[in-house]
Computed example of a mutant assay.
Amino acid sequence: MVWWRDRESLRRWREDPRHRQAQHLGQQRWYRHYEIQVAELVREYAFPAPTADNEWSSHE
């Protein structure tokens, strides 16, 4: 998954000559098929990763 700051950043990457060249090379040498999906994030949830102070454990 790739994240872009905004649509303009995505457009610049998509049209970058080096990216176009790499894309062409990939199509010729490695990939017979690939798909790209472009989506917008509507909502995001997160929780803190366990640390030594708050490590998760089962207390059953």
Rank of each mutant, 00 (worst) to 15 (best):
V42F: 07
Q27K: 14
A22V: 07
D16R: 07
G26Q: 06
R18H: 12
A52Q: 05
E40W: 06
S58Q: 11
F47N: 04
R43W: 10
Y45S: 01
N54Y: 00
E15Q: 12
H19I: 02
W30Q: 09
R29T: 06
R20M: 15
D16Y: 13
D6P: 00
A22W: 13
D53G: 15
Y31D: 02
W56Q: 00
H59D: 07
H59F: 10
R11E: 14
R11C: 04
V2S: 13
L10M: 13
S9N: 03
L25E: 10
S9T: 04
E55D: 12
I36D: 03
W56E: 00
H24A: 14
A52Y: 05
V38Y: 15
L25T: 03
A49G: 11
Q28H: 12
S57E: 05
R43T: 04
P17G: 04
T51L: 01
V42Q: 09
R29P: 01
S9R: 09
A39R: 12
R18N: 14
E44M: 09
D6S: 05
M1I: 07
R18A: 14
R29G: 03
Y34D: 08
R5K: 11
E60Q: 08
E35L: 15
P17Y: 02
Q27V: 05
Q28D: 05
M1Y: 10
R29V: 11
P17M: 06
M1G: 13
W13V: 09
W3V: 06
P48Y: 00
R32H: 13
W4D: 03
Q37F: 11
M1E: 08
W4Y: 15
R14N: 09
P48C: 00
E44I: 10
E40G: 07
F47K: 05
H24G: 05
R32M: 06
F47S: 04
P48L: 02
S58W: 13
L25F: 08
W13A: 14
R12F: 07
V2W: 15
W30T: 01
Y31S: 07
A49H: 11
E15W: 06
R5N: 09
L41D: 02
Y31R: 04
R18C: 06
V42T: 01
L25W: 10
E8T: 12
Q23C: 04
P17H: 06
T51G: 07
Q23E: 10
Y31V: 01
F47Q: 05
R14M: 06
